[in-house]
């Protein structure tokens, strides 16, 4: 594990992965959009609005997946003081907030015509809104604390405490009566969704995963570069002080 802790090694690994993940992101999203918008049928109940699902459901999965990655990285940062873990958690947060925002917006745009309301305070919708605020709170917290070690620690604790929300989101539709329907794809007894509709859903979900990898690696890179920039700036400032003395 610590072989990858070396930032230089990480940078080399990232350079190898990035072209592949970029190509896969573009390919999967283009084919996913083709099936989502053109080559898939309308739903027998919901008509064309079912196409909102191909954005809404993958975005909601990614919102939870990204938070899980952030929580795992936070645990690694807190327990093993893994140098890249904190960088990964920080880099993931804005991406997760973006996915959560998409899930919320598309959910409202889907709820208004189908349910008859933009928003209700049921357990699923409310717990996803809390997830969005957890992301925002995490970003505000780590940016507000100047000392990098203290920021990493505080952020990791917040991310881990917030992780209780993830099972609540996932199982809210099973534990309580909600307006939101239960899971269609990841459930006992196989998906209750026609194959012609499952295909665009899976393509978009895979595309979102590779998008996440591409953006996460780039963000981690800039975090690492900026850390070295700060170190070099401090060293230069120190040198010029010595020269002046």
């Amino acid at each position: 594990m610590h072989r990858f802790a070396n930032p230089a090694r990480f940078q080399r690994l990232a350079s190898i992965i990035l072209p592949w993940s970029d190509v896969l992101t573009a390919g999967l999203l283009v084919s996913g959009l083709y099936f989502a918008l053109f080559a898939s049928p309308a739903d027998y109940q919901q008509g064309e609005t079912v196409r909102i699902m191909y954005i809404h459901v993958p975005a909601a999965w990614m919102a939870m997946f990204t938070y899980s990655v952030m929580a795992a990285a936070s645990a690694a940062s807190l327990i093993w003081k893994h140098p890249l873990a904190d960088v990964a958690a920080r880099a993931a947060a804005p991406i997760g907030a973006g996915f959560t925002a998409i899930a919320l917006i598309t959910g409202m745009l889907w709820g208004e015509p189908m349910w008859g309301t933009w928003w209700v305070w049921d357990a699923r919708l409310t717990s996803v809104l809390i997830l969005f605020f957890l992301y925002l709170g995490y970003m505000a917290l780590v940016n507000a604390i100047e000392n990098p070690a203290a920021a990493a620690r505080a952020g990791a604790i917040l991310a881990l405490v917030g992780f209780v929300n993830i099972p609540i989101i996932k199982f809210s539709v099973d534990w309580w009566n909600t307006l939101h329907q239960p899971a269609s794809v990841i459930k006992m007894g196989g998906p209750s969704i026609a194959p012609s509709m499952l295909l665009p859903l899976v393509l978009m979900a895979l595309g979102f995963h590779f998008y996440f990898v591409s953006v996460l690696l780039r963000r981690m890179r800039s975090e690492l570069d900026l850390a070295r920039v700060r170190a070099l700036e401090d060293a230069i400032a120190l040198n010029s002080e010595e020269a002046a003395a």
Partner: peptide, 17 residues
């Protein structure tokens, strides 16, 4: 509803990227 959903996703994901 459909096009706003796709537009919002494009805007947010594109913006972050």
């Amino acid at each position: 509803y459909v096009w706003s959903s796709y537009g919002a996703a494009l805007l947010i994901l594109g913006g972050i990227a």
